[in-house]
Design a protein around this nucleic acid. Structure first.
Lengths: 175, 175
DNA sequence: TCTATATGTTTCAACTTCGAAGCAAGTGAG
DNA sequence: CTCACTTGCTTCGAAGTTGAAACATATAGA
């Protein structure tokens, strides 16, 4: 009498202990890192992690991006971005204006204040990441981690997008 | 005339390109994975990732945990857990009752329906993780990833906790 | 050109998350 | 025992996040 094997998930190859361990450790580490970093950003610059990401991304990119480019870069919903952009604009950290290329697009531009704020919080942020993430890693580990995660990211990006889930599928024509 | 070096962050050693790449790839990969997995769980079992984590954690652990144990395991605020537990209880997936050990504690127990649901969505979940995370990795990569992230997690856990930030520090006696 | 559809963004309502405050039960010192 | 403090959880209000719907502009095809 062989009761249901806990590792038997109905024909799908279950994750072996090594995979499980890697998966859990990965998710939890990032979650912890996110929490820590968020706290620091909040106390040092009154910014959420998302807001920091948006500003940092703009500070690169020559200071200008469309809403969609920003949302995609941060893996974020478009409506959520509209909200955050509103806050950042009210705080004087960014500016929103029409694009000359495409009348529909909103061009987001980082202001001098925005850049200054990024410059102000970046050192602490870097220190955090260094302390939390890189301290326990050797140069070799770092090399591997970067290589592995880059491959994983590219692989996932190749999958269908998600920030703007493909528009409502056109109602199938056979109705 | 040495203008401000972009890598000069005010005395703090900036992250070199390799570190930056690893950091960004890590955060984005997990973010993407989270999004994908969340979608699948929602369509297959009408569960959020958090809810799935809670049920899965309970399904291990002999089916019973206190609220605090659950919150700590999932890196979640206590009040948020109360909310989710309410939903899961309403859905008949868990049960809440007093603990005999400690009258204050609430003992959360997974129901048969809860177990059944976990069993139902787990294969798909595993398939997702396998497809998104492990597919592009060699056995060697997997080994490294698990090793690295385990070390990182343990390192972070050694830092002060976060699920229940230390209670309001008792007002220092010299006031 | 006219029309259908695609794309960029915002609005809106529902849901989720968080922290602070509140309540109840445990614990230790006197 | 009693007081002060700790710990486990919930309640409450404010803020953040999301998907669907609404708009507006673009684009392609007839």
């Amino acid at each position: 009498m062989t009761g249901p094997d806990p590792a038997d998930t109905g024909g799908v190859q279950a994750l072996d202990p090594q995979e499980l361990g890697a998966y859990f450790a990965l998710m939890e580490s990032v979650s912890l890192l996110h929490h820590h970093v968020e706290q620091h950003l909040r106390t040092e610059g009154n910014l959420s992690y998302v807001q920091f990401q948006l500003l940092a991304r703009l500070a690169g990119s020559d200071g200008q991006l469309t809403m969609t480019q920003l949302a995609d870069g941060v893996v974020y919903s478009r409506s959520g971005l509209t909200y955050q952009a509103g806050l950042l604009e009210k705080a004087g950290l960014i500016t929103r204006g029409p694009s000359s290329d495409d009348e529909r697009a909103t061009l987001v531009t980082i202001t001098d204040n925005g850049r200054a704020l990024v410059d102000r919080v970046l050192p602490g942020h870097v220190q955090d990441v260094r302390r939390l993430l890189f301290d326990p890693l050797s140069d070799d580990d770092l090399q591997h981690l970067g290589d592995i995660m880059t491959r994983v990211r590219d692989h996932m990006r190749a999958q269908p997008p998600r920030s703007a889930a493909p528009r409502k599928r056109r109602p199938s024509p056979n109705s």
